[in-house]
Amino acid sequence: MQIAHLEITLAGDEKGNIPSYQMGSLFHGWLMERVSPDYARLLHQSEMKPFSQYVEKKGQEAIWHISALDRTACQEIIVPLLEEDFSCIEIRHKKEVFKAGEKKLVYSFASYKELADRYYLESTPSRVVKMEMVTPVSFRSGGEYQIFPSLHLIYQNLINRWNQFADKVSLEEKNLAATLAEHSFISGYRLETRYFPLEKIFIPAFAGRMSIKIAAPSPMVALINMLLGYSAFSGLGIKTSLGMGGVRVIEEKRGEWSGKRQAILKIHSSRKFLMIKYSYGD
């Protein structure tokens, strides 16, 4: 198991407090206390974390979403949470205890190739992708927080994560994010500004829903679908291990795109990676 997404139902504490996305960094701290000391040190030294997690409040309970992006994270994080001896989360300095209910391993993939095949073997890939930013999403660009969705930033963020953790399937095309952004656009959105609390600061971000339309040949549509689908595991933007960037993706089927300018997607495979190149013709 190389990629996995686990959902754990959490009940409120004795005072009726329900976990919410604002507690993401506290859940991260609790999680780091459970992994091995060596792995905790490795994570602390890593700029890009091999897991994401966020808390989603639903009525009188909450869902804790945890995703692992490589085999070590699956073994260190996902597997222990599935064991019977894990029954509650204790946030010590707040004196809150949340009991764990149902544990559901929603997705698991043996490899990144298996995940890629899920999209490339689709006969008609989705040309409209709806995304719900469940917890606040933000990007850093030019030293500033970016609180409006940019497709170029979204694709680049996901490509970087994919290439960091995919061992045999990588995306090596130069300026790939820009190419994908040229062939898709945000067709609708309902977003609002949110601030994510982290220690003594509040990070400006956005949350809500948006739709992305893709005007491209099927192979490129499949690639965009794959990257956006991957965001449900990797998270989107910054601080995804601390509870930001929790994303839910909905794909809609559409007919084939017809355009005068067509593209041919050539996938060159080797033992270690898939190199993706584009060539255009009239």
Score class of each variant (00 low, 15 high):
182 E>Y: 09
183 H>P: 07
184 S>I: 05
185 F>S: 15
187 S>G: 10
187 S>K: 07
188 G>I: 04
189 Y>D: 09
190 R>C: 07
196 F>C: 00
198 L>K: 01
198 L>I: 11
199 E>W: 13
201 I>V: 15
202 F>R: 15
203 I>A: 00
205 A>W: 03
206 F>Y: 12
207 A>P: 01
207 A>H: 03
207 A>K: 10
210 M>G: 06
213 K>A: 15
214 I>L: 11
215 A>D: 13
216 A>F: 02
218 S>T: 11
218 S>M: 09
218 S>Y: 06
219 P>Y: 06
220 M>F: 09
220 M>L: 14
221 V>N: 00
225 N>A: 11
226 M>P: 01
227 L>V: 13
229 G>F: 06
229 G>A: 11
229 G>P: 08
230 Y>S: 01
231 S>W: 02
232 A>R: 12
235 G>T: 03
235 G>F: 04
235 G>A: 07
236 L>A: 00
236 L>V: 02
237 G>V: 01
240 T>Y: 05
241 S>T: 04
242 L>K: 10
243 G>I: 02
243 G>Q: 07
244 M>E: 06
246 G>K: 03
247 V>P: 05
248 R>Y: 09
250 I>C: 10
252 E>W: 06
253 K>V: 03
253 K>R: 12
254 R>F: 03
254 R>L: 11
255 G>T: 08
256 E>N: 13
256 E>I: 14
257 W>T: 09
258 S>D: 07
258 S>A: 07
260 K>V: 12
261 R>E: 15
262 Q>W: 03
262 Q>N: 11
262 Q>R: 12
263 A>K: 15
263 A>V: 15
263 A>S: 15
264 I>W: 06
264 I>A: 08
265 L>S: 13
266 K>W: 08
